[in-house]
Design a protein around this nucleic acid. Structure first.
Length: 555
RNA sequence: GUCCCUGUAGUUCAAUGGAUAGAACAUCAGCCUUCUAAGCUGAAUAUCUAGGUUCGAUUCCUAGCGGGGACACCA
């Protein structure tokens, strides 16, 4: 990759190793690449300007670096490097075209096997935008992980034995059968009013766990409805898992492990329940089995870990993608694993949750944005807007495009915010389809593709000398930075870095589109510009694919 | 009470310790006889407070204030 090679070469000439010292000048008139001299100066007990000339000399005299560098300017304590426009264009565009949908990828992961567990939804609850963030974040993390050379495997763990399932079954029996999500929130409010219901719930929970009687049958029936719903949503989002685990499949094995851990003193009985007492590690207490004998989530986690190791032998690392509110839970769990002598390398990959402008969402109170409702709303709005713009389009074309765009928009909304930030999801904003959104990017790509269609055949055999505009160089330089973005987003486990890059890149292209005419340009120039645009499309589709987003030819 | 995250423009978000703190939305003023105006251009508006470390702090440290979250039978 061009830029990295150049940085390496310069670092070699000046004998240093850390490529992160490089940065970029605030604007393109000041240079293309920048080397701040503070750290070097400090090392040598000099002032930055006292070694600038020496550094500059070395760079412009070296036979390798001088080939691609036009000029080195000393501006204060910075060494600003101007890369040769032609060389840059030649190297970067050929890189992009050669590697295509794998441009910018690396092998840092050395093909190590890693498992990512996400979409740990509860059955008997509706999938809302909080789950959407989890699913979309997980998908992007897996894609980014693969782009960085890891052998990544996505799995899902469905919590079908939570206490909420018993509550839902209870409400279902009371005749609240029309909607599973409503069953749950209704039961919660009823229990608040009348705490004695808890005993009925406890009986139902026990029946479910012991797999017996009418309660178990109803649980099975309602669970199937939920699972079908999940699959429908995965289908819409275009995602899938290599393996889906169910908590209920682990109940027997969980009991055995709990017994074992009890005998080994890792767990103990307390107030009728079974707990892990982790006070001495500053991690409080984690309840494992309720005093009525039914299991809690943590019990299943123990068996799940075994299953993952069995299904994915020689696992280098196991990631669990769950929102930040469960940080303590996973610290406790990993401590238990450690006490039990498990060797695996576990990481809780956390991200912050989604809330509404009016406050927290809560399935318990029914205050949520249900994903399917939201999706339908977005699809409808896009259909209306598309119809306005393309009166001649057939209904099924509008429908197909609107659905694809809706998925793209929703995914992007979830990924554009840094992972450790709460998303305040404002549906009014999300329905605007302007600015920092997937539509902005996909719309621009549609315009690029339209240019390519109208050009009567693409000829990639162009001369770089015909890319004369400054903005063309800026676009190419931006392309050259992509490999670093792919790497950094993996190191930080943050897909938002890709989303930001996509937006910035697209803005640059729209500027170009506005200022420079493509199709009316002189033939050789036109050829070069179209080649550049073609490589822009390749790059953007590559980056969007990491976010799980597909593009359209027309919008 | 303890622990974790967080505080940047009216709002929602950016900014490996580095050059003039960037966007988007909203507001105001413009651009379609030229490649898709879901686009582009311009105007205006911001680093919670007080110390400290540093040549240099939005960024790191300490304290305070504000917001959010987690802390035994939810997941």
């Amino acid at each position: 990759m061009f830029l990295r090679e150049l940085k390496k070469d310069i670092a070699k000439v000046l004998s240093f190793n850390d490529l992160n010292i490089f940065s970029y000048p605030p604007n393109s008139e000041m240079g293309d690449l920048c080397l701040p001299l503070f750290s070097f100066a400090k090392e040598r007990g000099l002032k930055p300007n006292e070694l600038a000339d020496d550094f500059k000399e070395k760079i412009i005299k070296d036979k390798k670096t001088k080939e691609v560098i036009d000029e080195v300017k000393i501006i204060g304590p910075y060494l600003n490097i101007f890369i040769n426009k032609g060389k840059l264009a030649e190297m970067v565009i050929s890189d992009v075209l050669k590697h295509g949908d794998k441009y910018g990828f690396n092998n840092d992961g050395e093909n190590k096997k890693v498992v990512y567990e996400y979409s740990n939804a509860n059955t008997h609850k509706e999938i809302h935008i909080g789950h959407l963030r989890n699913i979309v974040f997980g998908e992007a993390i897996v894609n980014i992980s693969r782009a960085n050379g890891f052998d990544a495997h996505p799995v899902s763990f469905i919590n079908d034995l939570g206490i909420n399932t018993a509550k839902t079954v209870w409400a279902y029996k009371k005749g609240h059968s029309e909607n599973i999500g409503l069953c749950y929130s209704w039961s919660v409010s009823e229990i608040d009013k009348n705490p004695e219901i808890s005993e009925e719930i406890s009986t139902i929970m026990t029946d479910i766990e012991k797999k017996r009687g009418e309660n178990y049958d109803l649980w099975k029936k309602t669970k199937e409805l939920s699972v079908k719903e999940f699959e429908e949503i995965y289908d819409i989002l275009g995602i899938g898992f290599e393996k889906t685990y169910f908590e209920s499949d682990f109940s027997d094995r969980s009991v055995e492990i709990v017994e074992d851990f009890l005998s080994r003193g890792i767990f103990k009985r307390s107030q009728g329940a079974i707990i892990a007492d982790l006070e001495e590690y500053g991690l409080g207490v984690l309840p494992i089995v309720r005093s009525d004998g039914t299991s809690l989530y943590a019990a299943a986690d123990l068996a799940l870990n075994e299953a993952k190791n069995k299904d994915f032998p020689n696992l280098a690392k196991s990631f669990i993608i769950v929102d930040v509110r469960q940080s303590l839970h996973f610290k406790q769990l990993f401590k238990i694993f450690e006490l039990a002598g498990y060797k695996n390398d576990f990481t809780h990959l956390s991200y912050d949750f989604v809330k509404l402008p009016e406050g927290m969402m809560s399935s318990r109170s029914g205050k949520v944005i249900v994903l399917k409702d939201l999706y339908n709303q977005v699809v409808d709005k896009i259909s209306i807007e598309t119809k306005k713009r393309h009166e001649d389009w057939a209904d099924d074309k509008i429908d197909k495009n609107s659905k694809l765009l809706a998925v793209a928009i929703l995914k992007f909304e979830m990924l554009k915010i840094a992972a450790n930030k709460t998303i305040v999801f404002d549906i009014k904003e999300a329905l605007k389809f302007e600015g920092f959104s997937a539509l902005y990017i996909l719309y621009s790509i549609a315009r690029m593709k339209s240019l390519l269609r109208k050009s009567n055949g693409l000829d990639l055999d162009f001369k770089v000398d015909n890319l004369i505009e400054d903005i063309e160089k800026n676009i190419i330089l931006e392309m050259a930075k992509y490999p670093d973005i792919v790497e950094k987003s993996s190191m930080d486990n943050d897909p938002s870095e890709i989303a930001k890059y996509l937006f910035d890149f697209t803005k640059m292209f729209n500027d170009y589109y506005q200022k420079v005419n493509i199709l009316q340009a002189e033939s050789e120039i036109k050829k070069a510009r179209l080649s550049l645009i073609f490589s822009c499309v390749v790059l953007l589709e590559n980056a969007l694919a990491l976010l799980g987003i597909k593009t359209l030819d027309e919008i």
